[in-house]
């Protein structure tokens, strides 16, 4: 048994083994996630798509250790989740920046908390760390905005800063929970390009939860389609397009047929559920 697990771990960085998750107790029990197996390679970019309530965010929280699996095991970097000294970055649909700090100090937050950076925080916060934040802000198009406060900036700018905060401590795992969901189409496409560039330079292992199939096909190497009630993965396909990808590519026939295919999968999963109930 152990050798089997070890062998699997050589390849996968994140591994879900027969994981289920159930909310509530007794009669009001809701199974958010049916028995699920999922493997993610180190440095890979996975998108989870599917209708609301299909357990996408549940998987994200299980892998981050914010929730515990009801049954089954979640491994990250070869150890059970929670025990591993893995750095995690997170970004949500809501930028959740701290309104009393300027952008620079907001992005600084993980360096203040996460080892090994926190040991050097006092010594380096005005020198090395500051320069790093400036470089990252420049990469996302926020050069010179470090002194601004969140309420002085637009939603798109806040979301960029939120991505910076998720990446500043060089996380091995990056968790994105619909980070572009609340933005307008053009800002969103702009941020896809930025996200792709960030991923290509920093190469964290990314798990992206999204409703947007085009976004999934643009950003991810692999797309897992999920169905609801109970939440489960019904399809797992590789996205073959070369990088760097562009928005123009999303009008190519192969790209369109991929998103079409994903859409049909989700629609048919939804109609089956409705037919059952």
């Amino acid at each position: 048994m152990t050798t089997e697990v070890d062998a699997a771990l050589d390849r996968s960085y994140v591994q879900l083994d027969k994981v289920t998750h159930t909310y509530g107790r007794g009669e009001r029990q809701v199974r958010a996630l049916d028995e699920t197996d999922l493997r993610i390679d180190k440095g890979d970019f996975i998108a989870l798509v599917g209708p609301s309530g299909c357990g996408k965010s549940t998987i994200l929280k299980l892998v981050t250790g914010l929730m515990e699996a009801s049954t089954g095991y979640v491994f990250v970097a070869g150890r059970e989740v929670g025990a591993e000294p893995v750095r995690v970055g997170m970004a949500f649909q809501n930028p959740t920046l701290l309104p009393w700090l300027n952008l620079r100090d907001n992005v600084m937050l993980p360096l203040k908390i996460v080892p090994p950076f926190r040991q050097d925080y006092r010594a380096k916060r005005k020198t090395e760390f500051r320069d790093r934040i400036e470089a990252l802000l420049t990469q996302v198009g926020l050069a010179g905005f470090g002194d601004k406060y969140p309420w002085q900036l637009s939603g798109g700018m806040l979301q960029r800063a939120s991505l910076c905060r998720a990446l500043i401590h060089e996380p091995q795992l990056l968790m994105l929970d619909e980070p572009f969901g609340a933005l307008d189409q053009f800002t969103r496409e702009e941020l896809w390009a930025i996200m792709q560039e960030l991923w290509m330079t920093h190469r964290p292992t990314v798990l992206l939860v999204t409703h947007d199939l085009k976004e999934a096909a643009y950003l991810a190497n692999r797309i897992c389609v999920m169905a609801a009630r109970p939440g489960r993965i019904i399809d797992d396909s590789v996205v073959p397009f070369a990088r760097p990808r562009t928005v123009a590519m999303s009008y190519d026939p192969e790209f369109v047929s991929l998103t079409q295919h994903l859409r049909e999968l989700i629609v048919s999963a939804r109609t089956t559920v409705e037919a059952q109930s």
Partner: peptide, 18 residues
């Protein structure tokens, strides 16, 4: 305090005091 903000802190493995 917003739950998402707490999630950010917990994902960073921040202590209660942090």
């Amino acid at each position: 305090t917003e739950p998402e903000l707490e999630d950010v802190m917990r994902a960073l493995k921040a202590s209660k005091l942090d």
